[in-house]
Design a protein around this nucleic acid. Structure first.
Length: 323
DNA sequence: GTACTGAACTCCGCGGAACA
DNA sequence: TGTTCCGCGGAGTTCAGTAC
């Protein structure tokens, strides 16, 4: 039997009459695959979570998912920041939103050489143990998947992610997927652009958000991200393809993404807000289908996002009914 | 003007890796 | 083996927008 977050004396006395049966499968999952217990509030939540966690975690062998936080610390590194718009912009959580890097104008910039030297020094510190004569390479040279590290389970959305173009720096309120890793001899790309864009689409979907809302309070730490169950991208799966293509059209809206567009072969992009809503609703519907959720379960997930408009929820359900 | 809510900022402590 | 540094996580504080 289980019941979470009970502080009332009477409720604790009547524990058995108000608690629910915590499924043994969920118990095994929490104990063997996760770093903390999955907290849930009843039968349907348990059923949904068990369906979602049938897929490999991002820190499992199936994925090659390498995260990093704190590229530039807003307090410790503030001596590097300026407001004269020279060099690379410093992105913080508040400057991006789901599928967009133009949500707000950056407040700080870092001179290109100052910033890249700083990051190359840190990277050199990481790879020097391999004793290889290799020039350090840094993440800001490439497109990278980012997400807000500071959030809340009761916010409009908890996981807010996009892909940022090269030549931008990140404040510590943004965590990111390393686009390049050092394997001991050379730098390799652990995930393709297609996989990265697909993951971005999954991150911004309601089912994945639903998981995090049952696990975090305010800090979306790296361990919670790495314990997300995400299916491996399958280019032959039409649902995966839909999420990848829609995400591409939502993210790559400026010339900063021309190289990425050419690389993944998606030239179209969408800036009209109504069209963007439709594409996002389709991504949510496809994600729910991938996780094998039924209409009742998707409706329940949507009902827990109380600040999201009813119109967008209905759009998502309509798209789901078409699959 | 005040209260409330959502969201971001800042500070501090912990733990592991590196190093003397 | 002790010390230092740095990445990371947690929590309190502050700010901004909105409703009344």
């Amino acid at each position: 039997m289980a019941k979470f977050h009970q502080i009332d004396d009477q409720n604790l006395t009547d524990f058995r009459s108000t608690a629910f049966e915590y499924k043994s499968d969920l118990f095994d999952l929490s104990l063997n695959r996760l770093s903390s217990f999955l907290e849930c509030d009843g039968e349907i939540t348990q059923k949904i979570l068990l369906k979602l966690f049938k897929f490999p975690l991002l820190d499992s062998e199936q994925w090659n998912f390498h995260t990093q936080s704190s590229e530039f610390h807003m307090t410790k590194n503030q001596n590097l920041f300026h407001t004269s718009k020279i060099g690379f912009p410093l992105y913080k959580g508040e400057t991006m939103e789901q599928f967009t890097h133009t949500f707000a104008t950056p407040a700080y910039w870092i001179e290109e050489k100052v910033g890249t030297d700083f990051l190359k020094n840190k990277e050199f510190g990481r790879i020097k143990k391999y004793k290889q004569n290799v020039e350090p390479r840094i993440a800001s040279d490439d497109y990278r998947l980012v997400w807000r590290a500071l959030t809340n389970f009761s916010n409009r959305r908890t996981l807010i992610s996009t892909i940022l173009p090269p030549n931008v720096f990140l404040g510590h309120s943004l965590n990111f997927l390393k686009p390049l890793i050092f394997d001991g001899k050379k730098y390799i790309k652990p995930l393709s652009y297609e996989e990265t864009i697909f993951v971005c689409g999954m991150f911004n979907s309601f089912p994945v958000d639903f998981i995090l809302r049952h696990r975090i309070l305010t800090n979306l730490t790296l361990s919670f991200i790495k314990e997300l169950p995400i299916p491996k991208f399958d280019k032959n799966n039409s649902l995966h393809q839909k999420i990848f293509k829609n995400s591409s059209m939502l993210i790559c809206t400026t010339d900063d993404y021309s190289k990425l567009r050419a690389d993944v072969g998606i030239s179209k992009f969408v800036t009209d807000s109504n069209e963007r809503n439709t594409l996002e609703a389709q991504i949510n519907a496809c994600a729910a289908k991938i996780y094998d959720l039924n209409t009742e379960e998707l409706e329940y997930i949507l009902s827990t996002f109380t600040i999201i408009s009813q119109e967008f929820k209905e759009l998502t359900l309509n798209e789901f009914s078409l699959l």
